[in-house]
Design a protein around this nucleic acid. Sequence first.
DNA 1: TAAACTATTTATAACAATTATAATCTAATA
DNA 2: TATTAGATTATAATTGTTATAAATAGTTTA
Lengths: 145, 145
Amino acid sequence: MTQSHLKEALDTLKETGVRITPQRHAILEYLINSMSHPTADEIYKSLEGKFPNMSVATVYNNLRVFREVGLVKELTYGDASSRFDFNTSEHYHIICENCGKIVDFHYPGLDEVEHLASHVTGFKVKHHRMEIYGVCPDCAGKEVH
Amino acid sequence: MTQSHLKEALDTLKETGVRITPQRHAILEYLINSMSHPTADEIYKSLEGKFPNMSVATVYNNLRVFREVGLVKELTYGDASSRFDFNTSEHYHIICENCGKIVDFHYPGLDEVEHLASHVTGFKVKHHRMEIYGVCPDCAGKEVH
DNA sequence: TAAACTATTTATAACAATTATAATCTAATA
DNA sequence: TATTAGATTATAATTGTTATAAATAGTTTA
C-alpha cells in the first residue's frame, strides 16, 4: 500500500517533469511512511543519517514542489511551524490540545456546507479544511487542571 | 451593536481582573469595528496615529491577554502572520484564494461531526474549526489562469 | 497623602521558521 | 564532449513573534 503510494507519487513527478533526485525520493518516502504529520525540520533531522550534507533549504524547496503538484498538503495550526501531510484520500484531522498529536479522521466530506457557503457568500468554492480539537485517550487520564 | 460589544468586552476584562488601559481600549475597539480580521501589525499601524509611542509588543501582549479571557480568536492560515477575530457568535470563515479576503459565514455548527470524531477516535472533543476556500465575487470576473 | 507594590508599556534584543542568493554540483541534451 | 538547465548546498537575509529589562502608571496599604 505504502509502496503503491510511492510509485504513484513518482509517476506524478515524472508526468509533471519534476526530476526525481535521491533527496526527493527520500523525503517522499519519509512522508508516506510517517503517520505523524512531520514538520520540515523533523524531516530534515530524520534524513541526516542518509544525507549528512542535505540542506534544510532542500527540504523546504521540495516540500513546496510537492505541494505545487498536489502530492502534499501543508497544515498550519497555531504553533510555530507548518506540518506536512502526504495527500492521499480526503480526510480531516483531530488534534490533541495536551500533547499535540494529530490523528487522521475520515468523514464523508461536507459538500452541503460548501454549497451553502457558496450560496450565501457568492464565492466560487474550491475546497475546505476542518480540524477538531480535544484531548486524546492517552492524555485523558493524566489531564491536569 | 458595536457599542454593546465593546461594553460587554470591557465588562469581561473587569470581571477577570484585567486593567483597562487606553491601549487595550483602542485595540479592542479597533478589533470590534474591523470587519477585516486584521494582523497584529495592521492593528499596530492603524493605531500609531493615536499612540505614536505604542510598541508592537503591546499589541501582541494584549492580543494574547484577550485570547486568554476568550474575547478574541487567533486565526492561523497558511500565510505568514496570524489574524485576530473578535469573538462574537460562532461562525466560520470563507477565504478568497485570489485576494486573501476573509468573510464571515454563519452556519448551525457541526455537532454531528464532533460526535462522530469523538466516537471514532476516542478523543474528548472540545471544539473545531473550519475554513472554506474559493474565489470571491470581486475576483471571479478578473480571475487569471 | 506618601510609600510600597504590582501591572503595563516601551524599547530593544533574541529567536525561530522560512525564503532568497550565489556558488557548486548533477544530469540531460545537442 | 560541451552546453545548458535544474537541483543542492551553504549561508545570509527576512519576518513574525517572544523575551528582557527599564521606565511608567495605577493600586493598595500604612
